[in-house]
């Protein structure tokens, strides 16, 4: 015999409105995220670089007709940094390194937003259906994931971009094709994990529809690792994209950091270090910033997978 209590333990009804609870939660979360100095450093870097991307036309005069093409000054080849009008010097074809650094931020922001946006959307959708419904669809997805994981992502993206032909748009496409699988896999595992909880069973017993269960109970509890991963990928995608364009898969003359590093490479044996150094440093800082913030977010949002303690 089990004693069934006559009264359920009373829960004090909250006096706060749902909105205020949510706001308070956001405040608490951001306070604990910002308690970590390296995360703050990451945030500062991100804000600085995104401002650079957004205000690029105000920082340097946009090149016409296509602002994403490097302006060339054939009268100022190989100028060192600090030369009049060329803060960071010029390349061996008269490209303004400062212009490339600033507009490269805009190119990178565009690249990372598009790729992360598409891959998260597709990955979450596919992963949710596979995890929530199971069955044939799940089976096929998992086999596909196995195949995608049997080759390093950069190599896969390289092969795809090669087929599509050299252009920055094709780099975007290749990265999207390669990266969505990662999100599908994470989301599927999360959904399976959350689905095993008692509150999902209870919701089912009281007759909630599948869609409502997914929307109210499963999705909000499964999405956290996706947010962390997406944050890190905002940096990682730019790193991989710049690598592909460094190899030569973007249009020559594009205002993009990898292209610029590659262009500057020719001059380093003659001691012209600047054309490669500055844009490469930008790729590093961009990736570093999102890694720092992603790391901080993970510590707070998802302490189970915390690695550094």
């Amino acid at each position: 015999m089990v004693d069934i209590p006559h009264k359920l333990p009373a829960v004090a009804p909250s006096t706060e409105s749902a909105l205020r609870v949510r706001l308070r939660r956001v405040r608490e979360l951001s306070a604990s995220v910002l308690a970590n100095p390296t995360t703050v450093l990451g945030f500062v870097l991100i804000v600085a670089m995104i401002s650079m991307a957004v205000f690029a036309p105000l920082i340097t005069e946009a090149n016409t007709p296509d602002p994403y093409q490097m302006p060339r000054d054939w009268g100022a080849l190989n100028e060192p940094p600090g030369t009049d009008g060329f803060l960071l010097g010029t390349t061996n074809t008269g490209g303004d390194v400062f212009y490339g650094v600033v507009w490269g931020a805009r190119t990178s922001l565009r690249l990372s937003l598009i790729v992360v946006g598409i891959t998260v959307l597709v990955g979450v959708l596919v992963g949710s259906v596979a995890g929530f419904r199971g069955g044939k669809f799940d089976e096929i997805l998992m086999r596909l994931v196995d195949v995608f994981l049997s080759i390093p992502e950069l190599i896969f993206a390289l092969a795809i971009a090669a087929v599509l032909g050299p252009s920055f748009g094709n780099i975007i496409l290749a990265l999207a094709v390669v990266f969505w699988v990662k999100y599908a896999r994470i989301m599927r595992a999360q959904v399976l994990h959350v689905k095993a909880n008692e509150y999902v069973d209870s919701a089912r017993i009281i007759g909630d529809s599948g869609w409502n269960i997914y929307r109210r109970d499963v999705f909000p509890n499964a999405i956290t690792p996706i947010i962390v991963q997406a944050t890190m990928d905002m940096g990682h995608i730019v790193l991989v994209g710049a690598t592909l364009s460094f190899i030569g898969l973007a249009e020559a003359g594009l205002a993009e950091w990898g292209v610029l590093v590659s262009e500057g490479q020719a001059g380093i044996s003659a001691g012209r270090w600047w054309a490669s150094t500055f844009p490469g440093l930008m790729v590093f800082l961009w990736a570093l910033a999102f890694n720092l913030v992603g790391d901080g977010l993970r510590d707070v949002l998802d302490p189970r997978t915390e690695t550094a303690r």
Partner: peptide, 27 residues
């Protein structure tokens, strides 16, 4: 060591290589 590790994940190989070349080969 922590700073070193985090920078490792963010370091573009192509840039790191070029910096090494500039310092240890050119200069």
């Amino acid at each position: 060591a922590r700073i070193f590790s985090i920078s490792g994940a963010s370091m573009p190989t192509f840039w790191f290589a070029i910096i090494l070349l500039i310092v240890f080969w050119v200069y």
